[in-house]
Amino acid sequence: MSIMSFTSLKSHFLIAMPQMADSSFAASLTVICEHSPQGALGIIVNRPTNLKLEEIYRQVGIQQPDAMSQHGDIVYSGGPVAVERGFVLNSGEMKWESCLSICKGLQLTTSKDILMAMAQEKGPADSLVALGYAGWGAGQLEKEIADNAWLNCEVDPAIIFDTPTHLRLHKAASCLGIDLGLISSDVGHG
């Protein structure tokens, strides 16, 4: 019996393959924020919702001054787990409460202090607010990758913060030299 070594995919993008059957992840681009032998946690970064950041501010009791410009920032669907819970991927210039460093230029925060700073235009240079997360149990993500459900590559924060939402998946795949439009969604076993 051989023991397989574990390789963490923390700070990697998961790029959904065209044949992804799970509608929660079809055509998704996910940032893996934590990965250990016990499982993984990620945030989907290309699923905008109709919810605006001002609504999140109201829901958590942050009052915005009248003189301040109203944010039109979109809130994303970060995944199908705990959809009532908020997460903020940000560029990491400052440390916030409940902060997890993912890689240089990217951290994940779940605390209200970052939202308060953002409402006062004192937050991070770049951020993405998401509700919910993607989660995998022990060995589940590794099996899905072995089954060709995902491609993966190192995270590039510029894809999250500087690339239009609808182009992020294809931009991440192009980092691997892959054009997802040329990959068939039909799986063949010859």
Rank of each mutant, 00 (worst) to 15 (best):
I3C: 07
M4Q: 15
S5C: 05
S5L: 14
L14S: 00
I15P: 00
A16N: 00
A16L: 02
Q19E: 10
M20I: 15
S23M: 10
A27P: 00
A27V: 01
L29K: 01
P37K: 11
P37W: 12
L41E: 06
L41N: 01
G42K: 02
G42R: 04
V45E: 07
R47I: 03
P48A: 09
N50P: 02
L51Q: 14
K52T: 07
R58H: 11
P65R: 12
D66N: 06
S69G: 13
Q70L: 13
G72T: 14
V75C: 06
Y76R: 02
S77M: 06
P80Q: 06
V81Q: 09
V81A: 05
A82W: 07
R85L: 05
V88P: 00
N90G: 08
N90I: 11
S91Y: 05
S91I: 06
E93W: 12
M94Q: 14
W96H: 03
C99D: 15
L100E: 15
S101Y: 04
K104S: 11
G105R: 04
G105C: 08
T109H: 04
K112F: 09
D113G: 02
I114G: 01
I114L: 13
L115H: 03
A117M: 08
A117R: 09
M118V: 14
M118S: 11
A119P: 04
A119D: 08
E121A: 15
D126Y: 12
L128A: 13
V129D: 04
A130H: 05
Q140V: 08
K143E: 15
E144T: 05
A146W: 03
V155Y: 05
D156T: 13
A158F: 03
T163W: 04
P164K: 10
T165H: 00
H166G: 03
H166K: 08
K171Y: 07
S174Y: 07
S174D: 14
S174I: 05
C175H: 05
C175R: 13
G177E: 10
I178A: 01
I178G: 00
D179H: 06
I183P: 00
S184D: 14
D186T: 12
V187H: 01
